[in-house]
Computed example of a mutant assay.
Amino acid sequence: METFDELYYREPYTREFDASVVSCEPADEGFAIELDQTAFYPTGGGQPGDRGTLSVGTDEGQVVAHVREAVPGEGAGEVIHLSDISLPVGASVHGCLDWTWRRDNMDAHTGEHIVSGIVHALFGYNNVGFHMGERCIEVDFDGVLTSDDALDVERRANAAIREDVSVEALLPSPAELAEMDYRSKKDHDGQIRVVRIAGVDSCACCGTHVSSTGQVGLIKILRVTTKKKRTRLELLCGRRALEACEAAMAALRDTSNFLTVGDEEVPEAVRRLSTERDDLKHQLKQAGRKQIDQYVATLAPEGSLAVCCLPELDVEDLRYLCEQVLERTDATVCAGISPVEDCPRLAYVIASTDADLRPACKELNRRLDGRGGGKAQLVQGSWASSSDAALTAIRDVLG
């Protein structure tokens, strides 16, 4: 449990500090170091722990321990620094935070408050899940938000950033707390810390935040996902949001240059290309069907089995081939196979006018390392086999 008197709470903008080593014990993949004070925020409340270094001066020079994560200890306000090397108990250390990581998390946590406060004010939904990851922030709400709703929330959140209102961390007394209107996901024992963003949000929280909304810089909602009457927003804040927008603009510029159109014309150009592609696919399909028709017109099966091997046909074309053979020849069973360039498997379709093909399909799959199946008079799948081996097996089983 936090005492809220820790250095990372009192002075959240502290990047470097001096302390003494209280304990150092072996831990998984390294050592667990406790200091008499620290600016390293420990993992908790949805916010990742801080990273950085602890340096100790020795006669041989500077010894630097790399802290991969700060985590809560067992006692109140206790922070464990998970380090790659041990440090001597009692040694004076100089701590240095990975400030980019910490500042990203401060921006993110503050941005989450802004978004959650606006969603709660507009729709009455509660934040029921929150995770700050390496890629983005995920926030879950107990209600449905549409894409238009999310866009409205994003615009209001960035308006609050432009207003640059204060972000305060309050430690109200029980009497003061009873008079306050604030969000809280669970009951708390002891002192409650309320983070208040003027006119935007008040929420019980133990994370680190920037001192005003303007310092967040930018909030960008990346994705809206709805499932079982809940909505997850994936968002970025601050530097990460700016870099994502820069990357998106660079991708847009590459696309517009490739299409030789203006940035604003890219959507229409892509739609036009998609339509042209669909038209070409249809024309290719029709041309392929004509080739199949010409092939069937020259086919003269001997007996009731027709075996056809044509390259570069998909399963849909193979079905069409078998249908045409059964309709236009005297064959009662047609097996169509197609080798595909640079593919180790053969596609197959077998059709019949009246016979149950499932036992034969099972036997062919066994012989030819195949997979697939289907209905009594139509089976399909693929075989890990050469064309010659497949043709021989077909004639053995179906001939």
Rank of each mutant, 00 (worst) to 15 (best):
F258W: 09
G373L: 13
V89A: 13
V296K: 11
G370R: 03
C309H: 07
G73T: 13
C361W: 01
P301G: 10
A248P: 06
S86H: 11
I118L: 03
T225M: 07
V119K: 01
E323F: 04
L218D: 03
A32C: 13
D181V: 12
C237Q: 07
S173Y: 04
T100H: 08
S387Y: 00
D354N: 06
F40E: 06
A347W: 02
R223A: 00
S173N: 08
R358A: 07
E2I: 08
A198I: 12
K228W: 03
E234Q: 14
N127Y: 14
L7P: 01
G288T: 08
D187A: 15
H113R: 04
E276M: 02
G124N: 12
E246Q: 09
P311Y: 05
F40V: 05
R223L: 00
D317P: 01
S116E: 04
S23A: 14
L233D: 01
Y125T: 10
P301M: 11
A32L: 14
L259Q: 02
C205K: 08
A393T: 06
V79A: 02
K185A: 13
D342W: 03
K290M: 10
F40R: 04
R253G: 03
C203A: 12
R358V: 11
A159M: 06
G111N: 05
L398R: 14
G61Y: 10
T255Y: 02
R277A: 12
Y8L: 07
H209V: 15
V379T: 14
L299K: 09
E134Y: 04
Q47V: 14
Y8C: 09
P12N: 05
V67I: 15
Y8W: 15
E60G: 07
T100R: 12
S20N: 05
C24S: 15
A269I: 09
